[in-house]
Amino acid sequence: MNDLVSIIIPTYNTEKFIGATLQSVQDQTYQNWEIILVDDASTDDTVKIIQDFAANDRRIKLSVLPKNSGNGYARNVALEKATGKYIAYLDADDLWFPTKLEKQIQFLKTNNLPFTFSFYDCIDEDGNSLHRRVEAPLKLTYKQLFFCNYVGNLTAIYDADYFGKVVITATQKRQDWRLWLTIVKQIKETKPVPEPLAFYRIRKDSISSSKVKLIKHNFQVYRDFHGYNLIFSTVLMIRFLFTQLVIKPRYIKTI
């Protein structure tokens, strides 16, 4: 029997996108999954849309926070409720290809890996292709990940029987990068599925759309998460920026 996959989705005011996101999971060729949604006190119709889906699919499980507590907190609450062997992450505005879970679970088992991810394509707010594909090294080491987050949150899956449920402090920015660093540090290296399996939606108000915010949050990973002093963190950040400007562009393809 196929192992259960727990899909973690925090939501906040995503009424425009959440229906398509949930539909992309329902369309999976791999059907043994549960979706754990935790809504962070949305003020739009996000909760109603999820409830409509959940009414017709018992695999969709929703909890609503009494007050807005942040995406990281909502994600951790969802993780606590997960019961699957595999933990997968999906943001409330992104989409999966129909064969995403099937191909990744098979890839994990074939390559004897407890953690993997994949390439992904980029779309705009309206779902139009941006003709950009984000790839990654075919063997991703901890050192490479240390200087660049090659793992798209919407593509990552890890084996909870191997790692346990990996919890990162909810108040920290770049929670996803800190999570992958924690995981890959244990196994030294991993491999991505070498093809796109998801659509990443680039929104005007997202952190990734603001270069200044992104640099600030990445710097705090070296300062707070790794615990390096100001001078060494600055040196590491210079190396990080070199990777972003010189090395990472090799993995961003025009399609």
Rank of each mutant, 00 (worst) to 15 (best):
3 D>W: 09
7 I>C: 07
8 I>E: 05
11 T>D: 08
12 Y>D: 11
12 Y>Q: 12
15 E>C: 12
16 K>R: 10
17 F>L: 05
18 I>W: 02
19 G>P: 04
23 Q>W: 10
23 Q>L: 10
28 Q>D: 08
28 Q>Y: 06
34 E>T: 10
37 L>M: 11
40 D>H: 06
43 T>R: 05
47 V>G: 11
49 I>C: 13
53 F>E: 04
55 A>M: 11
56 N>Q: 11
56 N>T: 10
58 R>S: 13
70 G>A: 06
77 V>L: 07
77 V>S: 13
78 A>Q: 03
82 A>R: 04
88 A>H: 03
95 L>T: 03
98 P>A: 01
103 K>Y: 05
103 K>L: 14
106 Q>E: 15
113 L>G: 00
113 L>R: 01
115 F>H: 08
116 T>S: 08
120 Y>K: 07
125 E>P: 01
125 E>C: 03
128 N>E: 13
133 R>K: 06
133 R>Q: 06
142 Y>V: 09
151 V>P: 04
153 N>E: 14
154 L>K: 09
155 T>K: 00
157 I>N: 01
170 A>Y: 05
174 R>S: 05
177 W>L: 00
182 T>K: 11
183 I>R: 02
185 K>Q: 15
187 I>H: 00
188 K>E: 13
190 T>K: 02
197 L>C: 07
198 A>D: 08
205 D>R: 08
207 I>F: 09
208 S>A: 12
212 V>K: 14
213 K>T: 12
214 L>E: 15
215 I>G: 10
228 Y>H: 15
234 T>N: 03
236 L>F: 12
247 I>A: 05
